[in-house]
């Protein structure tokens, strides 16, 4: 059966179409979810896409976390539903306290868009199982507020528990602490990543096909997971 992966559209979401395309290219059905609709329509996983939800007013992701759909997403995530937050989606997950830490203004204060090398740090999440440990991948990064910060204890914990999913290598584009580009929750079902895997899924438009790995991974996870754990 084709897996159904939800992609949420908030007012100001921008990469929602790209995330849906990536889901389709990975072989799943993309289900568009609306911020004002708390119903997840029975999807098997959820992607919170990049963009500027609610115009990034107040603080990136601060308003989106209160959207009706996010209450359901948060409950389901705590119940094990795989959730991937990309860029603004990562910011929303942090605001929703599904992930620790926060994303702040890039240290150099500029928006930056470049092709970025990452090293995969954990392959035991729902979204990274198809990568190999320490695999180096290349996907675009583009953000103005992507500098990951957390207190030292949290950073130590993330490292000790293998919850740093990817780190920037060959240059840190935004000043993130300990080069952190992506992290996961304790259960490994919720992943937040600042760079954009959905922009590296076609040779024609991306710097590589490495982004597909995230979407292929969750399909593999779902195929192997007992229904009760979702």
């Amino acid at each position: 059966m084709t897996m159904r992966i939800g992609v949420v559209t908030f007012p100001g979401s921008l990469d929602d179409g790209d995330a849906a395309r990536a889901v389709r290219l990975a072989g799943a059905e993309a289900v568009r979810l609306w911020h004002g609709d708390a119903d997840l329509h029975g999807v098997d996983a959820v992607v919170l896409p990049g963009g500027f939800s609610y115009g990034d007013a107040l603080r990136c992701g601060a308003i989106a976390r209160f959207a009706p759909v996010m209450e359901t997403v948060a409950d389901a995530a705590r119940g094990g539903l795989p959730v991937l937050g990309i860029c603004n989606g990562f910011q929303i997950l942090c605001e929703a306290h599904l992930l620790p830490g926060a994303l702040t203004r890039n240290q150099h204060l500029h928006f930056r868009n470049r092709d970025q090398h990452l090293r995969i740090g954990s392959t035991s999440t729902a979204w990274t199982g198809q990568f190999t440990a320490d695999q180096e991948i290349l996907i675009p990064v583009k953000n103005g507020e992507g500098c990951f910060v957390a207190d030292a204890r949290t950073l130590d914990e993330l490292a000790a528990e293998g919850r740093v999913v990817a780190r920037y290598v060959r240059g840190n584009p935004n000043g993130s602490q300990r080069d952190i580009a992506a992290i996961t929750n304790e259960a490994g079902n919720v992943v937040g990543i600042m760079p954009h895997p959905e922009h590296a899924v076609e040779a024609l438009t991306g710097p590589s096909l490495d982004g597909l790995g995230f979407f292929a991974s969750v399909l593999h996870t779902l195929a192997g997971a007992p229904a009760s754990s979702r």
């Binding site: 470049r114 092709d115 970025q116 090398h117 090293r119 290349l138 675009p140 490292a159 780190r167 920037y168 290598v169 060959r170 240059g171 300990r178 080069d179 040779a203 024609l204 438009t205 991306g206 710097p207 590589s208």
Partner: peptide, 19 residues
């Protein structure tokens, strides 16, 4: 050659920490 289609990444300082 697998990278064609996008920009070449700029060489950055090699990752010094790997922390």
């Amino acid at each position: 050659p697998a990278r064609k289609g996008g920009e070449e990444p700029r060489e950055g300082a090699a990752d010094p920490s790997g922390s």
